[in-house]
Design a protein around this nucleic acid. Sequence first.
RNA 1: GGCGAGGUAGCUCAGCUGGCUAGAGCGGAGGAUUCAUAACCCUCAGGUCGGGAGUUCAAGUCUCCCCCUCGCCA
Length: 573
Amino acid sequence: MPRPRYFTTPIYYVNDRPHIGHCYTTLVADVAARAARLIDGPKADVFFLTGTDEHAEKVVTSAAEHGMPPIEWADLNAQRFKDAFAFMGFSHDDFIRTTEDRHKTRAAALIADLMDKGAIELGDYEGWYDPSQEEYLTETVAKENDFKSPVTGRPLEKRTEQNYFFDLPAHEDWLRAQIESDAIRILPEARKNEVLGRIKQGLNRVPVSRRIKDDDPAPEGWGVTMPGDPEHRVYVWIEALCNYITAIDTPERAHYWPNSSGGDPLQPGGAGQSQVTHFMAKDIIWFHAVIWPAMLHAMGRPAPSTVYAHAYWIAEGQKMSKSLGNFIEIDQLRAYADKFSLDAVRWYLMTQGPLGATDSDFAHSRFVEVYNADLANGIGNSTSRVSNMIDKYFGGRVANFDPSVPVEIETEHAFVEVELTNHPTHFAQWVRESVEGCDNCNLASSLRLGITIVERVDQFISDTRPFSIAKKREGDARIESQLAMILFYSAEMLRIASLFLYPAMPEKMADLWRRWNCDHLNDPADHNSGFKAPLAELAQFGDGGYSLKPGQKITKGDALFMRADPKEDPPSA
RNA sequence: GGCGAGGUAGCUCAGCUGGCUAGAGCGGAGGAUUCAUAACCCUCAGGUCGGGAGUUCAAGUCUCCCCCUCGCCA
């Protein structure tokens, strides 16, 4: 049995409008989840979670501004995320909202557990309070604003109040050891250094609650109150982190968190144990790589295996910001998808995106370049030329050939035999590379393998020149067999290339499989229907159970990706 | 101010523990070809590897100084 794998995105602040940032993080998780399901095949045990974080005070005030109860406002906005994610073709298994009872009750239980274990205690909180906004500011923000309210300019007050604190410093040594040894793997590497550097500077207690104000605008039951102390509400950040557990705290799902029963509970990723990967943007790595693992440790639960923090998208060379109003929102991605196809958008984001530590630019000219190079001129054109030749020369069917007749190419001096015997070995190697890439979250390089194979197909066709051979095949069984073999090889290589490309482009690849009449999927019409076999078996070249067979129909269809004109204006939302 | 990352071809970046004429992809130029989506294939980049000094038989690759960019923290 393949080991269980659990992929998460952060739960998104429900007041936000879905934009490229939310979509990107979720896309990365989607591609990781799809790749895992493909690699592990029909027995894959993958759970992919996303959702929304809804208990922030601003949600209550925004709702009031819109003249509706907070939950209605949250419903409305959460739906926007659901719609956006459905549009993006994400394959999440669940969408959790922190306002749901299943979350609230379990989050409260987790906090209670921490209190029972003495990890959370009451203490004094001293900070800079902005009376006009009724909120505390961090030391940094306070200082930056010269200890005046950033909104009204009035002086801040130093205030003290009682709060509950999580004893983070108690876990310092453990955290450092876990992170240094990669027991908790922080990726990319640069982020790991950053986190370790910050831990070395010393850890502070983390406030986990806020006293509920007398004039609290939130309705009864909003948020999660501190167990045994209804005067305090659990700080949204702490409550939000709990979603990774609350969503899977059912008998069927519990195994997605590594359990304590088998061996050392604090050694995640032991054999058979679930592999947990949290994806997020770099701004919230501290919560996920330090506070959350420490909370889990305090509860006696294993930590996540991998915390992956990608960098940001910028737009046409400019940082995206509220003041500039240049966020690339879901509508703009929709406009690109309308023009270039959704899978093209997914491909661009995945292969050009900020998976590493540095930011990436979403530039229209770049989009078109990548679209043309990889998709239109790459997999699109190659599919087209291969299916066209099979149609033209063999009536649209994979033809029989005699494997003992070698394929030869004509050089200036002689006919040279083409080396084909290594093909199966090459593909087996690529499968290994792809699996390894996914394990290390090198999703982009794993996807690139598909394009590498397409390039091989184009080269192979140039070398063997089936279109020239076709002209002199009449009555020559040897040449006929060579032609059949070349096209079989080409089509078979494309079939395998498409498997590598699938996690990013599920719709288009399923389309290709329908044209090729391949039966990789349980339901050929549904790219989410699951695979009939693990990748290694599906990607077996030439004589595998899923390889193309003589007589198999290959349908010549419309262009998979039509070439785009770089001079055209960007699509607008 | 503290810690960290980085400055390599027009663009995006590879170059691990120092070693032959510094690489890839994209864009651009030329050629060849015609099965294909003006596509594919082949060839072409003469880039002071941020600047300076040093160590070494040998340095993008190590040391020191300087300049610049960017993170995280205070």
